[in-house]
Design a protein around this nucleic acid. Structure first.
Length: 268
DNA sequence: CACCCATGGTAAT
DNA sequence: TTACCCTGGGTGG
């Protein structure tokens, strides 16, 4: 259940585990059998992420993976055990293996088809080649709410429901503001904060957004109880008191997902 | 143990 | 707008 930071971690882990050596590629479940057979035994020579999309390069062939809501990778050391359950894709060497389960997408693409995927994605705060102005131009021209725009992968790639809620809270911006009403300064702050938050997310493997002065220790309050992420301000905290002002956190559906915000702290 | 819901996205209606 | 993909943790009976 990933946002972009997890996909970038997976790209790095696949490169480290399987890069520059021949890889046995199979589809124990069978739904990727045809694609797996075409690259089985070839060398993994590239792994990259763009937003929530993962690409594994075997020569001119790219495995394009999107985990969706349920998908996940499991890595293991040593010889791979007999497949259990539905494994769409298995990568293995003598030393390690990885199993992909329940992805939204697992397909083989040509370089041209891969380029088409990149073209329909907006700039990714985690990619060095990101051009944030491309997102700004869309946002500044849009009457859609900023809460919906941040979730639109054509506008910005890699941000999901947690980062959307948390970055808007951190900047005190109401999710109901229209994109065209954002100032350039506000947008620059959103982008900069996403870059910082998501880079940290890649490093620690979870989403922590609470500033040091608002940590449970600093605020003398209990930490969040569920493990859906790290320590956050508003995500999945409906009706609970805002960590900063105490107002009840509000929730509503926006862009088909549950949005969370503090009506007191986010009035701009 | 049944049921609900979820850090996502597409295709059908 | 709804169905679906098809996993897994949390919750309630």
């Amino acid at each position: 259940m990933p946002e972009g930071h997890i996909i970038h971690r997976l790209a790095a882990e696949n490169a480290t585990t399987f890069g520059s050596r021949p890889v046995r590629v199979t589809s124990p479940q069978g739904r990727f059998a045809e694609g797996a057979a075409l690259i089985d035994g070839r060398t993994l020579d590239g792994a990259e992420a763009h937003g929530k999309h993962l690409f594994l390069g075997f020569g001119e062939s790219w495995v394009h993976i999107h985990l969706g809501l349920y998908g996940g990778f499991t890595f293991g050391a040593g010889q791979a055990p007999a497949p259990v359950g539905q494994i769409r894709l298995r990568l293995e060497t003598e030393e390690a293996y990885a199993d992909l389960r329940a992805p939204n997408t697992c397909e083989l693409l040509t370089p041209g088809e891969k380029a088409a995927v990149h073209r329909r994605l907006g700039p990714d705060p985690l990619r060095a080649d990101a051009v944030p102005n491309e997102a700004w131009h869309r946002i500044a021209a849009s009457g859609t709410t900023v809460g919906a725009l941040l979730m639109d992968q054509k506008v910005l790639a890699g941000v999901g429901n947690v980062y959307r809620a948390e970055v808007l809270f951190r900047l005190g911006i109401s999710p109901h503001r229209a994109g065209r009403d954002l100032t350039r300064t506000e947008w620059d702050a959103i982008w900069a904060d996403l870059v910082a938050l998501m880079r940290e997310g890649v490093g620690v493997g979870r989403i922590d957004t609470v500033r040091p002065e608002h940590t449970p220790e600093a605020m003398n309050r209990p930490p969040r109880v569920d493990d859906h992420g790290g320590e956050v301000y508003v995500y999945r905290r409906a009706d609970q008191p805002c960590h900063v002002c105490g107002t009840g956190v509000r929730t509503e559906t926006m862009a088909s997902r549950n949005l969370f915000w503090c009506p007191t702290c986010q009035q701009r």
